[in-house]
Write a protein that binds this DNA or RNA. Structure first.
Length: 421
RNA sequence: GUGGGUGUGGCGAAGCGGUUAACGCACCGGAUUGUGGCUCCGGCACUCGUGGGUUCAAAUCCCAUCACUCACCCCA
């Protein structure tokens, strides 16, 4: 029996990693344009960070964390998301002392113990960004605009932004109360899932797939109807900024976020054609988080996108990444003597940054030509018995089959000169 | 945790009870002897996820098991 990788994990082969680098380069470009700087945090953190940061009632904490005790008896958890770590780093490095807002981005693997399916893995990868230290609604809109800019640069189409405000803790308390009041007479008619949601998180009942529950909740007060003046004004401004920037969105009062730390703005961007896991990114404001995990009362807003889902979206929309040439010159040696003569040339050409390949299987000239062709080599250098004796090599242009003879000693200079012209 | 689907060579995919398990792609080699992209020819599977069972006979039927996959829950 051979050993295979754990469930819900992936190997990314060269054809995949090429796409990753491309997408990451666009993300870095966009981050630079928006003024966000890179943050790298550990892949594991103290379990407490997530208990307090993500919230003890969330599914992530209750059933999805990879938690273990290390040899020092500390409870450690592989990070299930990035915001808590970023917030922790903000506090730990006293970034409140920097000019605000502090705008950071990160990317890397996240871990959640779930049954894998399309667009969902146990080790998955997120890119995320966080802006700490300002409650300006323009910053909420900036975060959404960032995602929008990124997707347009990538060429993705058909995205829809769902936007909501989940209010502050006061609005939420008020809403929860009104919602429970509204539903209480029909409590017995709700499905079993929703009956348990009723106490914990009645907002979730809006999401239930059960038609009966849907009809019961139809007409129930939404969070938007319960916003306090401050939250209402904030939401209005967020929408206004988006509209002015020409970013389309639609308000969905039923949008709920699964992590406890969200306040006010909540949004996600959906793309229907990548399966059931259609949320390609999600985020919002979390004004209570930093204080919750032990910092000063500091605002924050951010979002995270799922890399694997971005790739699925690119796949379904047929988005190709720009082709990068894999080989500039293929050195064809016929026989060991020729290979010995060509090997140092390969090393020095590569030292000049020229993509140089040669054969390691003792193949025929014809086969080596085929390989050179397949690699997309622009030139081939051929060294056989006759050339070796004469101290020359054949320099062949693969595109038009023109070839001439150059000196063996000057091969590096000559080839690099011709390639660069 | 719950439910559905699938499991044949590197990949895709026929075969669904009966002699040596199609085909396509990829890969390797060759087409009068040192030259590519097209075409043609040839090569590449002690074997149908694994373990039992039924049968004269199973990749084909049954059971179990594992893996993968999709969906629910929830989320990126």
């Amino acid at each position: 029996m051979s050993i295979t990788r754990p469930k819900g994990t992936n190997d990314f082969l060269p054809s995949d990693t090429e796409k990753w680098r491309y997408v990451e380069s666009i993300l870095r470009e966009t981050a630079a344009a928006y003024g966000y700087e890179e943050l790298r945090t550990p892949i594991f953190e103290s379990t407490d960070l997530f208990l307090r940061g993500v919230g003890e009632t969330t599914d992530i904490v209750n059933k999805e964390m990879y938690t273990f005790e290390d040899k020092g008896g500390r409870s450690i958890t592989l990070r299930p998301e990035g915001t808590a770590s970023a917030a922790r780093a903000y506090i730990e490095h006293k970034m409140h002392g920097l000019s605000q807002p502090v705008k950071l981005w990160y990317t890397g693997p996240m871990f959640r113990y779930e049954r894998p399916q399309k667009g969902r893995f146990r080790q998955f990868h997120q890119f995320g960004l966080e802006a700490f230290g300002s409650d300006d609604p323009a910053l909420d809109s900036e975060v959404i605009a960032f995602a929008f800019t990124f997707y347009s640069k990538l060429g993705l189409k058909g995205l829809s932004v769902r936007l909501n405000s989940v209010g502050c803790p006061h609005c939420r308390q008020e809403h929860k109360r009104k919602l429970q009041e509204f539903l209480r007479p029909h409590l017995e008619e709700l499905c079993s899932d929703c009956r348990s949601r009723f106490e914990k998180n009645p907002l979730r009942i809006f999401d239930c797939k059960n038609e009966k529950c849907q009809s019961l909740i139809n007409g129930a007060p939404t969070i938007l109807e319960c916003l306090c003046d401050e939250c209402q004004e904030h939401f209005t401004k967020v929408k206004a900024y988006l509209t002015r920037a020409g970013i389309p969105y639609h308000v969905d009062a039923k949008l709920v976020r699964g992590l406890d730390y969200y306040t006010k703005t909540a949004f996600e961007i959906l793309l229907e054609d990548i399966g059931a896991q259609s949320a390609i990114c999600g985020g919002g404001r979390y004004d209570g988080l930093i204080k919750e995990i032990g910092g000063n009362d500091t605002c924050g807003v951010g979002f995270a996108l799922g890399m694997e889902r971005v790739f699925a979206a690119m796949e379904s929309q047929g988005i190709e990444i720009p082709a990068v040439p894999k080989c500039d010159v293929f050195l064809i040696a016929l026989g060991d003597k020729a290979k010995e003569a060509l090997f140092p040339a390969a090393v020095s050409l590569r030292g000049k940054g020229i993509k140089t390949e040669l054969d390691f299987l003792g193949r025929s000239l014809k086969s080596q030509m085929k390989t050179a062709d397949r690699l997309g080599a622009k030139y081939a250098v051929i060294l056989g018995e006759d050339e070796l004796a004469a101290g020359k090599v054949i320099f062949r242009d693969m595109s038009d089959a023109q070839q001439d003879t150059i000196s063996l000693e000057e091969i590096t200079d000559e080839v690099s000169r011709r390639i660069k012209q």
